[in-house]
């Protein structure tokens, strides 16, 4: 059983219906640790040593955040800047994270259609997440395809619950090593694996 660390960053969590649903009781799943970064570090003063220790203790890291301006809220960037230190996460002696898995779990207002070459944004989510992927690679980690919730503004209760259920399933299969790395390589979103495998 692998251990999963969810680093959740949302400055207005109290307003986000989707994320409340996604994260509801999520830490009750065996092997999952949930960290609400804006609650831990409201003044952006990050406890670097403690964060590093958490990383070491877990096998899979999830950056969970709304897709603000095609990126993450500022505190998550601060976290990346400070926690992934040289000679800890990268560099000649920076092997603490080597071989671990990373995945982005994002909620986006735009539809899946909007994030295509032909769509409104003329760009894939995959491409926009490039900085995160490169960050993971520099730290010798494997960057999995993202878990994406599209079109959040138009969600109703049903759809929200379905998404939350998917997220939960994905976490459990990651924990239990259900998929092979090869399978991840073949899909655009990690969501897709759930469709094909029908857990």
């Amino acid at each position: 059983m692998k251990k999963i660390l969810i680093q959740f960053a949302h400055p207005a969590f109290h307003k986000s219906r989707i994320n409340k649903e996604l994260l509801k009781d999520i830490e009750l799943i065996d092997g999952v640790t949930l960290r609400n970064l804006y609650e831990e570090y409201p003044n952006f003063h990050i406890d670097v040593k403690y964060e590093q220790q958490l990383l070491v203790e877990h096998d899979i890291l999830i950056w969970h955040h709304p897709f603000y301006w095609y990126s993450a809220p500022s505190l998550l960037k601060e976290w990346i800047d400070l926690v992934l230190e040289h000679n800890f996460a990268f560099g000649k002696n920076g092997t603490a994270l080597k071989g671990k898995l990373v995945m982005s779990a994002i909620t986006a207002g735009g539809s899946k259609q909007a994030y295509t070459k032909e769509g409104y944004n003329h760009c894939l989510i995959h491409d926009l997440l490039l900085p995160f992927r490169k960050t993971a690679e520099l730290c010798k980690m494997k960057y999995l395809p993202p878990f994406v919730v599209h079109g959040t503004h138009l969600f109703d209760i049903e759809k929200t619950k379905k998404m939350a259920d998917d997220y939960r399933k994905l976490l459990i299969s990651l924990r239990d090593d259900v998929f092979e790395l090869k399978q991840f390589g073949q899909c655009r979103y990690s969501n897709d694996l759930l469709e094909t495998s029908k857990i």
């Binding site: 400055p11 207005a12 307003k15 709304p66 603000y68 207002g109 503004h153």
Partner: peptide, 18 residues
């Protein structure tokens, strides 16, 4: 403070377009 994030006006606009 948080009028920038997850605002109702944005939601309304998206819904209108939809």
């Amino acid at each position: 403070v948080d009028s920038a994030w997850d605002v109702q006006t944005l939601r309304d606009e998206v819904l209108e377009n939809y």
